[in-house]
Design a protein around this nucleic acid. Structure first.
Ligand code: ZN
Ligand code: ZN
Ligand code: ZN
Ligand code: ZN
Lengths: 164, 164
DNA sequence: CTTTAAATGTTATATACTAACGATTGAATA
DNA sequence: TATTCAATCGTTAGTATATAACATTTAAAG
């Protein structure tokens, strides 16, 4: 039986997703404890919903989920939770989709960069020191100081290409 | 008297902006003529407004301008013009700002990449074969086929950093 | 306890975008 | 030139995304 390579950045389909969600929340709790941040019930639940989805997730889908559970959420409820999670570095916003995804820390020390499959909607954070270096060089040449990078590469992942 | 370096990618403040707008429109007309595309009055005016602004420009600002001039524009009027200009490669969308900017072709053959100054809102398209190469390598490693790249680097340009 | 700042609830509104359909235009060709 | 047909545009309405403003609740700190 053919297995997808375990070390692929896109191996999300073959993973233990229960453990994946659990680990993400544990990491979040650890980070918040370390930094003196409050991972409140709403914030925790929004993060959990995003990881349950394990795909770029829209604010209003989160809103609908929260409302189905507790019936009293308005847009600010969700956007405030998202702002907190973004500031804490626990999620990223995918600008080209107006959607949010859990940070798996795969970008390491560098700026986050994403491969986004349009077919299956899965996203991989990739590290790439070479990209960081090249961009830093271009910025320096222009006398430009970098604050934030939005690097979102759209296309087709290996699995989706294979199945046509 | 101190002059900004003329060869800077961010030299928009010292340029002949009248000629800049005129050149952009001439390029657009040439391109459309070559490709059998129709640069209609609305499309031409939207492109002109974007170049007059010479900054990332929001759809509703364009809508208001058009309305001030002719009084009968609705959102589709502007969005259809923008879609045409995007398809023709005459403008780019800046996803992180929900705004549109004229293409100055500085990205050359590669995917467009932008340096975006948060202070003065100016944008520079930069070429960077090194970035393209590094991203292509990462994509290949992941078995990922690239369709489209969104690369938007936010920060502070040299002029804005200098004036504090 | 109190105090106070952070977090949340609530209402309203701003901004960004698209679907649908009829009217007009203009390029192609009969 | 007249006809035709597809592209463009006008118009209405609606959906999707995000924020402002202020009241209320919660919980950390004194
Ligand atoms: Zn998972
Ligand atoms: Zn895929
Ligand atoms: Zn100019
Ligand atoms: Zn600047």
């Amino acid at each position: 039986m053919i297995q997808a390579p375990e070390n692929s950045v896109f191996d999300a389909s073959g993973h233990d997703h229960g453990a994946c969600i659990h680990d993400a929340l544990t990491r979040a709790e650890t980070l918040c404890a370390q930094q003196g941040l409050r991972l409140t019930a709403i914030r925790r639940r929004v993060l959990e919903l995003i990881w349950e989805n394990h795909r770029p997730t829209k604010a209003y889908d989160l809103l609908n989920s929260i409302n189905a559970e507790r019936g009293n959420a308005a847009p600010p409820t969700v956007y405030r939770a998202l702002d907190f999670l973004l500031d804490a570095g626990l999620i990223h916003k995918i600008e080209s989709l107006n959607a949010f995804i859990g940070c798996d820390a795969a970008h390491g020390d560098g700026h986050p960069k994403f491969l986004i499959c349009r077919a299956c909607e899965r996203v991989a954070e990739i590290p790439s020191p070479a990209v960081d270096t090249a961009l830093a060089r271009e910025a320096k040449r222009a006398g430009f100081t970098i604050d934030h990078e939005t690097i979102e590469i759209g296309g087709t992942c290996a699995a989706c290409a294979q199945r046509g």
